[in-house]
Design a binder for these strands. Structure first.
Length: 593
RNA sequence: GGUCUCGUAGCUCAGCUGGAUAGAGCAACGCCCUUCUAAGGCGUGGGUCUUGGGUUCGAAUCCCAACGAGAUCACCA
């Protein structure tokens, strides 16, 4: 419909004023509520070329449109340079039916020919449990993946697990020293939390050692370097690299505990991956790739044996790729991971979901991958998101000011449960299992929406003192709207919603139809902007608009059967649209709540 | 110091490639449940869109500068 109107305007501009204007670029916006009409065309862009007054142009275009497509444009009005079109009610009915019948409403089908987009997200270290920052990463990554897929891309979700390095050795060492053989089974702790405890223990003892050494007159840097615990950790890392049997066995064991813990958290968050890479498997590939690049003359070796990339041509500095002892750095590992991935998948576009503190890293990685010949390297996307801050600053694991992911999830679900039991008209005829499931869906909905509704680039504030809301602009508000509609539809289960609609929508209903109709555009836009928050905002606006309608209009009690059916179709389409939008964010919808 | 983000109501945030009188939620106050689910709806109050220039029919939006907040510029990952 919009395409036809755009074309008609382009035709009118040409025939009346001799202005050539590409139809697709003509902006049609929804008319503001204060004015009569549904769609608005802004005439200002052409008045100069046409040498007429804005209002005269509006009238001329309005006349032309009514003449050209009377079945769609029933009338118009002009305010200043704004041409407001009133679209025929039957056109809206047709629009509604088309959306209602659309099998996968709002989403573009994916084929074998669709571009392959790989999304890396989560990427945890295996020495401590996940916290709120990881939650943001995981939720954003999952949402991006779903949105890309809805926009018609093949999507591969990957995770690169940082399972090796000095930080793992710290946990291992502490466990050996003070763990007394503790396991998740003997302690009843989740594996990731157990290991995290030893990471903290290491740090505590280590700091004591440093303090003692400094008391003996050693300067801080030397003390940090020479503290016995740190030396032991380093020795352990060397042994690990050498493949020492005992160290590797312990490493394996502890990682398994951590993975079991992560799996629980991932499951609770509704996060999954198609392919998981481990740094212990990619870092050697990275070294090899760098060595190959060195041979091809892409990099250079310094006198001390270290290998560097010269980025001065790109306006950057030199970047180390291999230390003089031949060991790899962060960048080397990311190159190796890229190499493996490229071997595994025909990647067209790569998206890294990583915090904004690593913007420089990805700027460099992009240059290096491009230089190495990865076709997607140059245009790799660093989806850079802001930090989650607490009222008194950033989260710091060492200072214990972290919001633990598992605690938060449990708290949200408990809050949701309490909330539903406080309700005035709470559900009484449900089983314990149903109540628990609703609390899970609603609690997680509140958490996910809270995080995803804000622009990912911005730092966001989380105040643990104030629990996440369930009223207002929240996930539960939207879920509640869905549940209300489902309740109506259950009561009208005997109505045939596929029958031809004869009733026309009223003004408020037209506004809702216009809102629903935007879903495909919103999905496309949010996919190309990498903007999950746009989906959240859309879902909220739709839910809010529906709630007003729900308050003012009766659906089941409408006497006119034709109108009633039309309203049911509208409700059904809105429910599906809400479910789709929330689904893209990884938020489930309850049938009742 | 260089680079990159961000600055909108008391608080947390929307405002898409410039469009009509800048919007929500929370918090405060006042209404609305014998009526399809009150996790809802309606209303009141609350703003020099950090500041100053520029671009033009029109700027919260684009450009420049200043101020303020954050990130980054490691042989840490």
């Amino acid at each position: 419909m919009t395409e036809k109107i755009q074309q008609a305007i382009a035709d009118a501009l040409r025939s009346i004023y001799g202005i050539e204007q590409a139809a697709a670029e003509i902006q049609l916006q929804n008319t503001k509520k204060e004015f009569e009409g549904n769609l608005t065309i802004v005439c200002f862009p052409w008045v100069k070329a046409a040498r007429v007054k804005p209002a005269d142009m509006g009238a001329a275009l309005g006349d032309a449109l009514v003449a050209a497509m009377p079945e769609t444009v029933s009338r118009y009005n002009v305010v200043g340079g704004f041409l407001n079109l009133v679209i025929n009610e039957t056109a809206w009915t047709e629009r509604l039916v088309a959306m209602h019948n659309s099998a996968n409403w709002g989403c573009t089908p994916v084929t074998d020919q669709s571009p392959l987009v790989m999304i890396e997200y989560s990427s945890p270290n295996t020495n401590k449990p996940l916290h709120l920052g990881h939650v943001r990463n995981n939720l954003l990554g999952g949402a991006l993946a779903r949105i890309q897929e809805a926009a018609g891309n093949r999507v591969v979700k990957t995770n690169i697990v940082n399972d090796r390095g000095i930080h793992i050795c710290k946990s291992m060492l502490a466990w050996l020293k003070w763990g007394e053989g503790a396991t998740p089974e003997t302690t009843g702790k989740k594996g990731d939390h157990l290991i995290g405890d030893y990471y903290v223990a290491f740090d505590k003892h280590y700091r004591e050692e440093v303090k003692e050494l400094m008391a003996k007159g050693m300067d801080e840097d030397t003390a940090k370097n020479e503290a016995p615990l740190m030396q032991e950790a380093r020795e352990m890392l060397v042994k690990w690299e050498q493949g020492d049997k005992d160290v590797r066995a312990l490493w394996q064991q502890m990682n398994e505990w951590v993975y079991a813990g992560f799996d629980e958290t991932y499951k609770a968050l509704g996060v999954s991956f198609d392919k998981i890479y481990y740094e212990s498997e990619t870092y050697l590939v990275g070294k090899q790739t760098v060595m190959d690049g060195l041979e091809r003359g892409l990099f250079e070796r310094h006198d001390d044996g270290s290998v560097w990339a010269d980025l001065t041509a790109n306006g950057l500095d030199q970047k180390l790729l291999l230390r003089k002892d031949g060991t790899s750095v962060y960048m080397t590992q990311d190159i190796g991971t890229a190499q493996l991935r490229y071997k595994d998948f025909p990647i067209d576009r790569m998206i890294y979901v990583v915090g904004n503190e690593q913007e420089y890293h990805f700027q460099v990685l992009s240059i290096l991958l491009d230089r190495l010949g990865f076709k997607w390297g140059k245009d790799l996307v660093h989806f850079s998101y802001g930090m989650v801050e607490l009222p008194n600053g950033k989260m710091k694991s060492r200072e214990g000011t972290v919001v633990d992911a598992d605690d938060l999830v449990a708290q949200m679900i408990a809050d949701a449960r309490a909330m539903s039991e406080d309700k005035v008209n709470k559900l009484t005829d449900i089983t314990e299992a149903e109540a628990a499931e609703i609390a899970r869906i609603v609690g997680m909905g509140a958490l996910k929406y809270f995080i995803l509704k804000v622009d990912a680039r911005k730092n966001m504030l989380f105040n643990p003192e104030e629990s996440i809301d369930f009223n207002g602009n929240t996930g539960p508000f939207i879920q509640y709207t869905y549940a209300r509609i489902r309740s109506i539809l259950r009561k009208a289960a005997d109505t045939d919603l596929t029958a031809a609609l004869t009733a026309s929508p009223c003004e408020k209903e037209v506004a809702l139809i216009q809102k629903i109709a935007k879903l495909p555009d919103v999905v496309q836009q949010c996919a190309s902007d990498y903007n999950p928050a746009g989906i959240a905002n859309y879902a909220y606006e739709l839910a809010k608009e529906f709630n007003q309608y729900y308050h003012d209009y009766s659906i089941l009690k409408e006497d006119d059967a034709d109108v009633r059916t039309m309203r049911l179709v509208l409700c059904d389409t809105i429910a599906r649209t809400i479910a789709t939008a929330l689904g893209l964010l990884g938020i489930e919808v309850p049938e009742r709540m």
